[in-house]
Amino acid sequence: MKKILILTILLIINLQAMEISGTVISDNEKIISSKFMGLIKKVYVKEGDFVKKGDSLYSIDSSNIDSLKKEALYNKEMLENSLANIKLNYERYKRLYEKDLVAKYELEQLKLQLDNTKNLLNIAKAKIKEVNTQYEYLNIKASNNGLIIKKSIKEGEIAIPSMPALILTDLDSLKIKTSIPESALQRVKIGTKVKVFIESLAFQTEGKITSIIPDTQSMTHSFIVKIDFDKQDKKLYPGMYAKLFLEFVNE
């Protein structure tokens, strides 16, 4: 604490920096939701759990897709049987046509029926493939390593497509977020160096400003600032309080 106090005094005396407060955030926070509606069978995580990329987060009952698959398989079987019969008739009519026993029109009609049935069978096969792919979406998995910071679902509830179920925050993409008044924009720039101090860990490090964004939600004419910083293998979490000393760019 003595080092920080001395640093603050020196910075104020030299008018080379400004002290502000900030908050650790994740620059890669994902809202997890399901693609299909269905009964939530199992939830594998709770708030505060660390997960790895590919870990199962929750699963949805497959009854709806089972019905679709059963229907698609039945349709495929019917078309295969129909195609086999049409092929037999077409080959028979072809032999008869070669002996001038049937009209060319009849043979052409059977050929058209044969081609149409083949196309329908290809569509049915594609439908089965599509249904099988949907099973993958019933087991929702983590897209990256991270921390579950919010859970809005329970087992036995209905999963609704696009409705937030979980929030996953990436601890490998931590930054510090703060705000500065409009009057400071002339002196604070992208690349401005920042001294960072996280009091709860007595951790001091350095960083620099990577983005300056107008705060459209505020009426105070302030700007949101994001700071990339050296984490030095420390265990840091979103929401941690940080003291920041912004080193002004000399004009």
Rank of each mutant, 00 (worst) to 15 (best):
64 N>G: 04
23 T>E: 08
98 E>Q: 13
165 A>S: 13
82 S>M: 13
186 Q>I: 08
90 Y>R: 12
100 D>C: 04
4 I>L: 07
128 I>Q: 09
170 D>T: 12
193 K>A: 07
59 S>D: 04
169 T>D: 04
244 L>T: 00
5 L>G: 00
86 I>R: 05
243 K>T: 09
108 E>T: 07
79 L>D: 05
80 E>S: 15
3 K>I: 14
43 V>G: 05
181 P>V: 01
145 N>F: 02
27 D>F: 03
13 I>H: 11
192 T>C: 01
176 I>A: 01
74 Y>N: 08
170 D>Q: 13
87 K>D: 10
166 L>M: 05
118 K>R: 15
227 I>T: 02
31 I>P: 00
75 N>W: 06
233 D>M: 12
97 Y>L: 10
230 D>Y: 11
150 K>R: 14
6 I>M: 03
147 L>V: 04
99 K>Q: 07
147 L>Q: 05
108 E>H: 09
20 I>R: 08
224 I>D: 00
182 E>I: 02
26 S>Y: 03
216 T>Q: 11
218 S>F: 07
240 M>A: 05
66 D>V: 05
197 F>H: 04
76 K>M: 10
82 S>K: 15
131 V>Q: 13
55 D>T: 08
36 F>R: 07
80 E>D: 12
36 F>A: 03
11 L>F: 10
206 E>V: 13
180 I>D: 00
65 I>M: 02
203 F>Y: 03
167 I>H: 05
244 L>S: 01
91 E>V: 12
123 I>S: 09
50 F>M: 13
10 L>F: 10
19 E>F: 15
58 Y>D: 01
169 T>S: 11
198 I>S: 01
177 K>F: 10
64 N>H: 10
44 Y>G: 00
67 S>H: 12
24 V>D: 04
116 N>D: 08
82 S>W: 05
113 Q>G: 07
149 I>L: 05
101 L>F: 15
122 N>Q: 15
10 L>Q: 14
21 S>M: 12
80 E>T: 14
160 I>F: 06
151 K>T: 09
95 R>M: 12
113 Q>A: 14
76 K>R: 14
181 P>C: 07
100 D>P: 05
94 K>H: 10
30 K>Q: 03
193 K>M: 14
157 E>V: 07
189 K>F: 06
106 E>K: 15
211 S>Q: 08
134 Q>F: 14
152 S>T: 10
27 D>R: 09
237 Y>K: 13
181 P>K: 08
249 V>A: 11
64 N>E: 12
44 Y>P: 00
31 I>E: 04
119 N>E: 12
7 L>Q: 11
218 S>Y: 11
76 K>D: 02
9 I>N: 08
127 K>M: 07
112 L>K: 14
202 A>M: 10
179 S>Q: 11
124 A>P: 06
164 P>G: 01
134 Q>K: 15
158 I>L: 06
108 E>P: 01
225 V>Q: 00
230 D>S: 13
65 I>T: 08
196 V>A: 01
204 Q>C: 05
228 D>N: 15
238 P>K: 10
177 K>S: 03
69 K>H: 13
194 V>P: 00
155 E>W: 11
5 L>D: 11
181 P>E: 06
118 K>S: 06
68 L>T: 03
189 K>I: 00
